[in-house]
Amino acid sequence: MKSIQAIIPGVLLTVVIAATSKFIESILPMPLISASVIALFIGMIINYFLQSDNPVTKGATFASKKLLKLGIILLGASLNMATVFQVGRLSLSVMVFTLLTCFGIGHFSGKFFGLNWKMSNLISAGTGICGGSAIASIAPVIEADDLDVAYAMSATFIFDMAMIILFPIMGHALGLSDMAYGLWAGTAVNDTSSVVAAGYAFSDGAGDFATMVKLTRTLVIIPTVIVFALISAHIKSKEEHKHEKAKFSLTKVIPWFILGFLALTVINTAGFIPESVGHTFKLISKFLMVMALAGIGLKTSLKDMKSAGTGPMLHGFVISALVVIVAIGVEYFMGLV
C-alpha cells in the first residue's frame, strides 16, 4: 500500500503534464511539435525547480518504465502488417536504404562523436523510423538511460523543426510531383506530426501520400525492436556469463512487453480486433507514451544534458542530413524524380 501511495504524486503529475501537452498540440495552427516532445520539455523545466528528494520521483519512474511498456503493448493493436503490402511497396525500397544509412553510417558517426551505443542508436532509430514512438519503444528494450532518451528526442525534434520549413521549399525547387515529394517527406522527416506538416505544406495530395508512407514506416518498429532485443540480450549475456554458456530464454532475448506488442499486432493483422477498439487502444497508447516522456523529463537534468556536450546533436544532424540525401537519391534512381 505504501508503495502505491509513493507513486501517486508523480503519476498524477505526469497525467497533468501529458494532458497539458496534448492540449498545446491541439491548439497549434499546424502540427509543428508532438505532445511527446512538449511533455519531455515541460518535465525537464519542472525538474530544474525540484529538490533531489522530491515526492514525484518514484511516480515519474513508474510512468517512464511501467506505463511506457504498457503503451508499447497497446500500440500493437493499431498496427497491421497488411498495410505494408497495400501502400508500402514503393516506400519500402526507399526505407531499406535510409535505414541502412541510419544504423550503418550512424554506428561510425556515433563513435566519432563519442556517444555510447544506446544514445547513438536511439537517435538513429528516431531519425530512420518514426521519431518519438521509435525512441520510446526501443529505449526500454536496450535499458537506455533517461539522458539518452532526452537527447535522442531533442536531436530529432530540432531537425524536424527545420525540415517543416525547408522541405516544401526544396520540393518546389526540385520540381517534384506530389507522389515523389510525399514519398520523400514520408521517408526522410522524423516525427509523424512533422511529416504531416511538411507534406500538406507542399500540397494536399503530397500530404495524403506522405502520411500513408509514414504510417507504413511506423511498422518498421516491429523488426527493429526485435533486433535490438537480440543485441541487448547478447551484450548482457557476454557480461554475465563470460566463462560459462548462457541458457536460452525467450523472455530474456525478447522482453515480455515486446512479446505482448507482437501478439496484439498479429491478432490485429488477422482481423480479430475491431477498428474502433484498435483506435481506442492507439489513443491510450499514445497518451501513456506522453506520460512516460513527461516522467523521463521529470528525472532529466538540464545541467546533465549541457555537460554531455554537442556530440549528440551533431550526430543527429549528420544522420538526418544523410537520410534526406539518400532518400531523394534513391527516388532519382527509381525514376520517380
Rank of each mutant, 00 (worst) to 15 (best):
M1D: 12
M1P: 09
K2N: 11
K2L: 08
K2Y: 07
P9N: 11
I17Y: 07
P31S: 09
I33F: 07
S34F: 04
I38V: 14
L40F: 06
F41V: 15
I42T: 10
G43K: 07
M44H: 05
Q51N: 14
S52L: 04
P55N: 13
V56M: 09
V56H: 10
G59H: 02
T61C: 03
K65E: 09
K66H: 10
K69R: 14
L70N: 02
Q86Y: 05
V94W: 04
M95W: 10
F97D: 13
T101Y: 03
L115T: 10
W117M: 01
M119G: 14
I123Q: 07
S133T: 15
I135D: 09
D146W: 02
D148H: 01
A155W: 07
T156R: 00
F157T: 13
I158M: 12
A162K: 03
I165Y: 11
L174E: 10
G182N: 06
T187G: 14
D191G: 10
D191K: 06
S193I: 08
F202A: 04
S203W: 13
A206R: 07
A206Q: 05
F209C: 02
T211D: 08
T211W: 08
V213P: 10
L215N: 02
L219K: 08
I221E: 13
I221Q: 11
I222D: 00
T224W: 00
F228W: 04
I235M: 02
H241T: 11
K252C: 03
I258C: 00
L259D: 00
F261S: 02
L264P: 02
V266D: 00
T269S: 14
A270D: 04
A270Q: 06
I273E: 07
I273T: 03
P274Y: 09
L283W: 08
L288H: 07
G297F: 03
S301N: 13
M305E: 09
K306C: 06
A308N: 11
G309S: 11
T310W: 14
M313A: 03
F317K: 00
S320F: 14
V324L: 15
V324P: 12
V326S: 09
V326N: 01
A327R: 01
I328V: 15
V330M: 00
